[in-house]
Simulated assay, not measured.
Amino acid sequence: MSMATQTADPVSLADVLSIHRIGGSEFLGPARTTSAPRIFGGITTGQAVLAARATVTGHRPIHALQTTFLRPGYSDSPVTYRVDPLHDGASVSTRLITATQHDRIIFTGTASFQQPEHGLAHQLTTFSGPRPEDIEPTARAVGKSRSSSWLSALERTTMLEFRFPDTPIRMSTARGVAVDPHQKFWVRPVRPLPKDSSVHAAVLGYLSDALLLSTSLGPHRKTLQDPGMQFATINHSVWFHSTCPADDWLWYEQEGIWAGSARAVCRGSIFRRTGELAATVVQEGLIRVTPE
């Protein structure tokens, strides 16, 4: 093995989300060896953003994405993304994305892109929290607490860095403690991203899925890893409010606003360091507890 091969650049989230055109409006997300057999929903979301954007001409950033997860995807096989143009107006373009694996549809989504315009502006939500630099990194926190080792594993598998000002819901429920279905944290990719606004939008879509569904388990003293627990995203929507550098620290506020009928609905707000609201997220997921 050559020295150049041994010292190859480490894989970044841009590499993980990368797709390539296989003809017309079809794109391929290659199979990747991961520690989990199922594809993390954020990967499918991010690749759908990239596929749809590749069919839109001009400077029209994504402003909305509504998705439905129909079947699990598996990391040992490629995923094909077909993009159909639904509309190209004077300022807005809309695309339908269909993801298939082994000739079965696993995901559908509708993405909308808008030419930047000036208009009325306000945001109702604001945030106040400690700077990420003032919160202990996970590596040091894990060294002090065995119960936080799950977070170290999460960072490795998602390639995201997290900093929690308060105890994460997952740590409380693992100890059998009931907590309110709210959590807040700073998050960013472990490695920098290329200067491509489409990639940053895709990564924002990717990280919007991180930990959101588990927020609903706070009052129930359960984790998604408990025996007899079945969970899956049913639908996931992201509204992109502004072009956002996704490799800087982002403040993510999450809340589980409802649970029942083996489902849960969670909502998230993602802010830039400056306090500007970057995205709003709503997710519905299946959370079913089966007899052990």
Results as ranks from 00 to 15, higher is better:
I97S: 09
V79W: 03
L65M: 08
L96C: 02
L70Q: 05
T57S: 15
I105R: 14
I62K: 08
S93T: 07
L65N: 05
L65R: 02
A111C: 12
H118P: 02
V79I: 13
Q101I: 01
H63W: 01
L65H: 07
G73P: 06
T98G: 02
G73M: 07
T110M: 01
F69P: 07
T100E: 12
H102L: 14
G58Q: 09
I106V: 13
A54M: 11
D103F: 12
R82Q: 14
P85Y: 00
Q115M: 09
Q115V: 06
A111T: 10
I97R: 00
A64I: 08
T108M: 13
V83Y: 04
R104M: 15
F69Y: 13
L65S: 05
H59L: 15
R53G: 12
V56D: 00
L65D: 04
V92A: 04
I105Q: 15
I106N: 05
H63F: 11
T80I: 11
A99S: 08
T110A: 01
L96S: 03
T55M: 01
H122Q: 13
P61Y: 11
Q115D: 13
A64R: 12
P116N: 02
F107N: 06
G73H: 03
L124N: 13
Q66M: 14
S77H: 14
F113Q: 03
G119V: 03
L86D: 00
H87D: 06
T94V: 02
V83G: 07
P78Q: 04
D88C: 07
T55G: 05
H63M: 04
P61V: 14
Y74G: 06
V83P: 02
R82Y: 11
Y81I: 05
T94R: 00
S75G: 10
P61I: 14
T57W: 14
D84I: 08
H59D: 15
Q101L: 03
E117G: 04
H118Q: 14
H59W: 07
S77N: 10
A90H: 13
L65I: 05
T108S: 12
T68D: 15
T98F: 08
T100P: 08
H122I: 11
R71Y: 08
G109T: 03
F107P: 03
A64G: 13
I106Q: 03
P72H: 03
Q66A: 14
H87I: 02
D76L: 02
A121K: 15
I62P: 04
T110D: 02
E117V: 08
T68G: 13
V92F: 03
R95V: 00
S91C: 04
L65A: 08
G58V: 09
S93W: 04
P61Q: 05
Q101W: 04
